[in-house]
Nucleic acid binder design. Structure first.
Lengths: 221, 221
DNA sequence: GAAATAGTGTCTTTAAGACAATATCAG
DNA sequence: CTGATATTGTCTTAAAGACACTATTTC
């Protein structure tokens, strides 16, 4: 039952190998909705089309390093903790050849993206407000975005601002509005407070109550 | 800031490509503990060493197909729903060269493994009782087993026997003992019942109470 | 004082933990 | 009947949902 090609002494070089790409969904929250960073493709026949930043894995490079290199070179941002989502391998998803894509996700505060967004080769797309743009992405990137948003929601259901999208210190209102944007649904004010307060560290400070009673300011635990 | 090698017109063939392997942790429950299937390596310099069944991805083959082919050829089993866990890419994890391993996990009832276990090239290893064997696995397979068991526990915390390891129909006692083996800890009898009963379908039948009051028999919802 | 927002209290519902009580089998 | 196991009931505790109330600011 053994495959004869797997006989002892066979070299790895005897087999054809796939190209391996990394594609990253850089997520942020802007104007109350989850947005994903897109770059204009320049290096292939999709020239001019918007897509997730991606690159091919180089020799002796880890996947995480490839992701960081790609974000630096194509979007000018220093991503923080890219996480591997899954490998997409449907045949035909990439018409350039036999390409596996290892999808990643990262969360970056909007302020860290402002410099990159000055380039007209970089833009944000709302995942809730611009469905036609998202579903039209090449190379099956729409699937990656969907997985990434799903992962983001799971992360934000567990802890206060795990992606550090909010500048510190912040009020519980700021935090709740951020979590509502991620969840895409309103969250109960008091239930939210009871869940989050034990996971935050209070500063002694108060917000300047520009409209109404001032609020306590917090930082992530 | 663009990389010159990524200029339009460059071919995928211009870049060196990694070998891509799939390694699968086939899990089952035997004698009250979670076990993983190992095969004796024959095709490389680890000849004779126990390891997870794995193979290299072939051209125009999906990862899932490669996993199924490997399990069929090396262990003689028809795996059911292999799930992708994650890519392991630490340089140096494989001394045969530049190899990425896409780890998978599958759950198979012990009865479906009996035929395969007659071969002396196939064995089970308890993940709790034989740590020295597991941690000694080559190619970083110990990490894969750890991830796989973690995944199994998460799956069994959510639903009754999602891997269909138990023959139907079964009693709630059978189900609880299986879940205790997976969790590696005793589970409260009444809490377990209250959680699982709504997710099961009752047959009219009763077990033959060989010791004590007979129990109702259930099937998965 | 009115409007706005922050912070606290509490009632209800739901689920889990922990037992206790009852039911039904083999011997 | 006794021993063993299954099934049901209930008390307590913890957490969430849903409100209501009080407190502190700006205007």
């Amino acid at each position: 039952m053994k495959d004869s090609k797997n006989s002892p002494g066979a070299s790895l070089l005897d087999y054809p190998r796939p190209s391996v790409a990394v594609d990253t969904a850089v997520l942020t929250v802007a104007d109350g909705s989850v947005c994903v960073l897109l770059v204009r493709r320049e290096e292939d026949h999709q020239h001019g089309k918007w897509a997730l930043p991606g690159t091919f894995l180089r020799e002796r490079e880890t996947l995480a390093d490839a992701v960081l290199r790609c974000l630096r070179d194509k979007a000018g941002i220093s991503g923080r903790v890219p996480r591997q989502l899954q490998v997409f391998d449907e045949p035909g998803r990439d018409d350039r050849g036999w390409v596996l894509s290892v999808a990643h996700v990262d969360m970056v505060p909007l302020t860290d993206l402002e410099e990159a967004l000055k380039s007209n080769g970089v833009r944000l797309a709302s995942t809730t407000g611009e469905p036609e743009l998202i579903v039209g992405l090449p190379y099956g990137h729409a699937d990656i975005v969907a997985k990434a948003v799903e992962w983001l929601r799971a992360a934000y259901a567990e802890a206060p601002d795990p992606g550090a999208l909010l500048d510190e210190p912040f009020t519980l209102r700021d935090l709740r509005e951020l979590h509502e944007a991620v969840a895409g649904a309103p969250l109960m004010r008091d239930t939210f407070r009871r869940f989050m307060e034990p996971k935050l560290a209070g500063t002694g400070q108060m917000s300047d109550g520009t409209r109404g009673r001032p609020s306590r300011l917090w930082v992530r635990g």
